[in-house]
């Protein structure tokens, strides 16, 4: 599913050059459940952004589902993001004026899916997230855990093969965090490839594979 070869990412801050990723090699197969751990500033988010095609590496090669992505233009990368990748963020990033159902519908709207089909799939996803009775609530009328479940629903409504979650439980209490993790693991059990950045060693242990990062480099463990 994912093949990173010698990927580097540098940021120019003033005169200084920050190496956020150094020569990263990484292979992840379809259906895997991977936790990415490491201290703050070690490059976890940068890695996730590159995997999600939101950012591009300065050097190296990234093949997603067999397609070399580093040579694609902006339009093509947007297309791949739309069809193959779902994002879940620590800060949820729901559109505040839209209801739960509308937030979930948004990616399909951007992808010009027919309205009938959209309604059908939104209902399906709401049900799967256990939010059927919250469909017409706006984000400010939902709890943190419910918001993150809406965000997960939005990430999977286009039925992507890859789900990227950057500290999805970071803003949640123990209980809601547990709920969200269970939802994500259930999706993984249904076949989606799940990559999750987390600071919680307990969560890290639940994953079938853990990747440790340090200062922009990946130390792979099992």
């Amino acid at each position: 599913m994912i093949e990173l070869r010698d990927v580097s990412r540098e940021f120019q801050v003033g005169d200084e050059c920050v190496h956020a990723l150094r020569h990263v090699d990484l292979t992840i197969h379809a259906g895997e459940y991977v936790a990415i751990m490491g201290p703050s500033g070690s490059g976890k988010s940068t890695l996730l952004n590159i995997l999600g095609l939101l950012d591009r590496p300065n050097a190296g090669s990234y093949r997603l589902a067999g397609v070399e992505t580093t040579t694609l233009d902006e339009e093509q990368r947007a297309q791949l993001r739309q069809q193959q990748i779902g994002f879940v963020f620590q800060a949820f990033h729901l559109v505040p004026r839209l209801t739960a159902a509308e937030n979930i519908e948004l990616p399909m709207m951007l992808a010009a899916v027919e309205p009938d089909e959209r309604r059908h799939r939104v209902d399906e996803v709401l049900q799967a997230m256990g939010l059927s009775d919250r469909a017409h609530h706006r984000p400010d009328q939902l709890s943190g855990g419910q918001r993150q479940r809406v965000a997960i629903g939005r990430a999977i409504v286009m039925r992507p093969g890859l789900l990227l979650a950057d500290e999805p439980t970071g803003n949640l209490d123990q209980h809601s965090g547990q709920e969200v993790i269970e939802v994500l693991e259930k999706l993984n059990n249904q076949g989606i490839t799940l990559l999750m950045v987390t600071h919680d060693p307990g969560l890290g242990r639940r994953a079938r594979r853990t990747i440790h990062m340090l200062d922009g480099a990946v130390e792979q463990g099992r």
């Binding site: 339009e75 947007a78 297309q79 069809q83 990033h93 948004l106 951007l110």
Partner: peptide, 16 residues
């Protein structure tokens, strides 16, 4: 800004 970033993450190209 966040909303625009989100739309791009969801696959909206520049033109859209």
């Amino acid at each position: 800004t966040a909303e625009i970033g989100l739309m791009k993450a969801l696959g909206a190209p520049r033109a859209q």
